Simulated scan of single mutants.
Amino acid sequence: MKHKLLLWGGAGILLLLLSIVVSLSMGSAHIPLLQVWRILLHQLPLVGQHISVDWPISSEKIILEVRFPRIILGILVGACLSLAGTGFQGVLRNPLADPFTLGVATGASVGAAFLILFGIQFLWLGQWTVPIVAFLSGILSLLFVFKLAGIQGKFRVETVILSGVVVQAFLGSIVSFMITLSDDVINRIVFWLMGSLALRGWEFSIILFPYLFIGFIVLLGYGRVLNLFALGERQAAHLGVNVDRSKWIVLIFSTLISAAAVSVAGVIGFVGLIVPHLIRLLVGPDYRLILPLSVLFGAIYVLWADTIARMLLNPQEIPLGVITAFIGAPFFAYLLSKNKKMTDHS
C-alpha cells in the first residue's frame, strides 16, 4: 500500500505543480512559463531576494491577484468534491453516489436562487450570505434524502440513490420555477447554477480550507472501516465496526465538505463521481489509498476543467459546471450501464 501511495501520490503532486504553473501562464494575457516560475519564486522569503524583477508589474498582478486565487480555489473545490464523493461511495457501496446525484448540489442551489431572486444576497453577511444559506440548504436537502430512504430511523443503502434522484428532481423544479419569476436576475441565478470560480478572491479559499482539512483527517481515519463496508454491513459489524455510527459520521462529514464547496463555487457536477472511480481503477479498492489520491487528482481535474472553461472560447468564459457535466454525464451513463449489466448477470 505504501509503495502505491508514494508512487501515485508523488506523480500526482508533480502533475499538480506543473498544472498550476501552466494554468497560470494561460489566459487572455499570455505570460511565458519561465516568467511565471520567476514571479512565484520571487515571493518566497529566502529565494526571492536572489531573483531580479525584470517583468512588467501588470504580469505580477495578473498572476498573484487574479489567476492564482482562482486556481487555489479550484484545487480546493475539486479536492472537496472528490473527497465527498469517495465518502458517499464508500458508505453506500455504489459508484453512482456523489454530491450531485444525492441532491446536495441542487439543495444548495435552492437557497442561493431564493436569495438572488429576492435581491437579498448581501443582506445579512455581505458576500457570505449566499454561501452560508446555500451551505445550510444543501445539508437540509441531504437530510431529507436520508429521511426519505429510511425505515424506522435507519436509512436503507439500496434506496438512497433513488431518493436522491427524487429529491433532486423536486428541488430542481423549484429552482426552475424561481428562474421563470426572475426577469431581472435570471442571468445571475443561471450562472450560479452552472458553477464558476470567476471573481472569487483569497477569502473563499480561506473559508473552504478548514472544511477540507478537517474532513480529510476524519474520513482518512475511517479508511479501514470503508474497506470493511465493502464486505457488507453485517460482516463489518461482526468484525467490530459500529456500523450506524460510522455511516453517519462519514456521511455527515462528506455532506459538510460538498455543501461547503458548492456554496462558494456553485453547482459543479460529477467531480465526486468520476475521480474516485478512476482512482479505484488505478490503485484498487483500498480506501486508505483512494481517499488521499482522490483529493489530489480531484484538485487536478477541476483545475484543468476550469482552465478549459477559461480558454476554450477566450475571451468569453464557459461556466465550469458545463465542462464537468459535458465530461461527467457520459461517464455517469457508462457506470449506469455497467452496473445494470452486473445486476442482470447476478
Rank of each mutant, 00 (worst) to 15 (best):
F253D: 00
L282D: 05
P292V: 01
F326T: 13
Y222I: 02
N314Y: 03
F229D: 01
G328H: 08
L289P: 12
L282S: 14
I327E: 06
L256R: 10
Y334C: 09
I327N: 12
L239V: 08
L313D: 01
A261T: 08
R280F: 11
G272A: 05
R245F: 09
G223K: 07
A261W: 03
D286S: 12
R245D: 07
I274A: 11
N314Q: 13
V264T: 11
V271F: 09
I323Y: 04
S263P: 00
L281G: 12
A299H: 12
L291H: 09
A299P: 12
A261H: 09
G272N: 08
P292N: 03
R310H: 06
W304Y: 14
G269K: 06
A305Y: 03
H277S: 04
S263L: 03
A236Q: 04
S258A: 15
V225A: 11
L320T: 10
L256C: 11
A261M: 02
V267K: 13
I308C: 11
W304P: 09
Q235H: 14
L296P: 14
A333L: 15
I252S: 14
R224T: 14
Y334M: 11
W304V: 14
V262R: 05
Q316C: 01
P292T: 05
L289R: 11
F229I: 06
T324I: 02
T307Y: 05
V241M: 08
F229G: 04
D306S: 10
V283W: 01
L289E: 02
A333P: 08
